[in-house]
Amino acid sequence: MSGAAQQVITGRYLCHIGDVADGIARGFAVSGLRPKVIVVRKNGHLHAYLDACPHYTGGTPMAWKSDAYLNGAGTHLACHSHGALFELATGECVLGPCLGQSLTKIDVTITATGEVFAAI
């Protein structure tokens, strides 16, 4: 992360890092993009994925209600269509209908002041 005051950010604003506490996931709408972007923080690492389960062509939203993206134990992202589980760090499906497929990973940049931008 660069602390330079003149840092040039490319991408779309998602959230402030303070919006996503460690161990939780949240979905953020991005103007002009149909799926939300899921941002999840675990052990200090931030990961972002399209809210689009690969089980269906074109993807389908995964939460059961707003921001409810994790399984009960909080160890995986879950698709609440059919219970598929995805690794937090890689987006790989480890259980369920889309076994072996992965969520679409979104690269993020975090500014010195904590704003999270998506490379989309």
Binding site: M62, A63, W64, G72, H80, S81, H82
Partner: peptide
């Protein structure tokens, strides 16, 4: 149809 935490719609 709606998503659910019961692993099915």
């Amino acid at each position: 149809y709606f998503n659910s935490p019961l692993g099915c719609h």
